[in-house]
Design a binder for these strands. Structure first.
Lengths: 263, 263
DNA sequence: GGAACTCTTTGCGCAAGAACAAAGACGTCC
DNA sequence: GGACGTCTTTGTTCTTGCGCAAAGAGTTCC
């Protein structure tokens, strides 16, 4: 397997436009580096962004990226910033939010490893209309939009993948939009939990767990943290979910899904 | 200008998968046909789908389409149908809807001349998850997905445009999602009116008019027709809009936009 | 022209859930 | 280990806007 060219040094040269992003400049031992490379490549190969892209091409594209890491709550980009980069999460997770007047916050989507964070398909001269914030310590590969655009031209499959990703996002948001305008809160919350658990849930002794606060669940569902808290407390007592501080886990996935039907 | 090859005959041969679509088989006089061609080409050239596509290429792509027309309320495709076609509206308008349980209907978006109706960027083996219905008598150009895919491969700009269109749609829905989860009905309705008027409003003696029923406005805004009716009656009395059966027109556009701020 | 249909208006009662408040649990940082 | 900060629970009150009903206005079709 050809050595992937590292860009740790490059990231020192290139201006880091991402707010709060710290370049990975710690120089690990060669073994750790090999290991990191391997992890990165396998992840990338499973990302929807690189679906049906040849491994050799994938490696070339990845080698042109620089690596960044984010701490929990770091902003990856801010609404209003010009779109300069394409960011592929390799670990951790992030939320895409918008703010209403009076500071109310809405979560438009969550991103996990293998997901592209940010405005795919936007004209480079456009501006972000959402803010992305890390939910946990995360790593990412970052390309400048110009560089990525060049790759898109050379590898048409890349652009096809982007189209597909956008389409997926649109469909999910359409589903959420339909729910928020027709279903009541309990149904929306249970559906949203199912979606989020499928996307980002982690296996924790026999159940799936998602690390989101009541408030974040409310912002995902279009309600208040109070209502979320009441519903979760209820479901907790009925044995459908188990609630923790800033986390919910589900053992009885079936019951959660059925919850939506009955109510 | 090279003659555009007509496909009126072709549409007789090709199986028409679109429900309720009637192929244009009336054979107009050559002059009318010329005129129609011209109208079609100028419209197409202004469609976001053909932005920055060479006129010659545009003509080739258009000549491979067949033409259909739809009457008001005709279904263009149904949720659950396999995605077989790409449909470009050349006149009229359509709504994209989804149904909740108990028959409640949500309008996810409206399409006008130059807009692509349907699932762009979906895998051909996928199925529609929305229904498209003509709001008025409409004409459209239709390509089979396979044919259109071939063009996308030959003309990369086409795929870039699709990406861009999807991105636009995503942004609009994100905006609507933010509004529906944070703003109250009056604000949402006034914003929605502004958006819809900009997209599909027709100049009617000094004002912009949109032909949507109270119920359709409610389905766009995520509320009931009663609430919409009350708000519009109020705004009508205050001289901000003028209401008609199945239509709203706005003379004081500014006031409508400001309405959103104050409340 | 008028019957039938659809769309719209308006009134009234009510419930879902938002807003607010206050206390309790959990985690963390000295 | 204890003080502080954040997150969560739970109670109470209150408002928005939904549900339903019934009358009114505008089309369409004989």
């Amino acid at each position: 397997m050809p050595e992937v060219q590292f860009t740790g040094s490059l990231s020192v040269l290139a201006p880091i436009a991402v707010a709060a992003a710290r370049a990975v400049v710690s120089l690990p031992a060669a073994a750790a580096r090999e290991n990191n490379t391997f992890r990165k490549m396998t992840l990338v190969q499973h990302s929807p962004l690189f679906a049906n892209v040849l491994p050799s091409e994938g490696r070339e594209i990845v080698s042109a990226a620089r690596e960044c890491q984010f701490s929990r709550r770091d902003r990856i980009f801010l609404a209003g910033d010009p779109v300069r980069q394409v960011t592929l999460l390799t670990s951790g997770s992030a939320k895409i939010v918008q703010f209403g007047q009076s500071g109310t916050e809405v979560i438009l989507g969550l991103k996990g490893p293998g997901d592209v964070v940010g405005a795919l398909g936007v004209c480079p001269q456009d501006h972000h209309c959402s803010t992305a914030q890390a939910l946990a310590a995360s790593h990412a590969l970052i390309w400048d939009t110009g560089v990525f655009e060049t790759f898109s031209q050379r590898f048409p499959q890349l652009r096809r993948n982007i189209t597909h990703i956008l389409c997926q996002q649109l469909r999910e948001l359409e589903e959420r939009y339909r729910e928020i305008s027709t279903e009541k809160v309990s149904v929306r919350l249970s559906h949203q939990l199912v979606r989020v658990l499928n996307q980002l849930g982690r296996r924790v002794n026999g159940g799936l767990e998602i690390r989101l606060s009541r408030e974040e669940l409310a912002q995902l569902t279009g309600t208040t943290l109070f209502t979320v808290s009441r519903l979760l407390s209820d479901w907790n007592q009925r044995g459908i979910v188990s609630t923790r501080r800033e986390a919910v886990s589900v053992h009885n996935f079936q019951a959660l899904a059925e919850l939506a039907e009955e109510e």
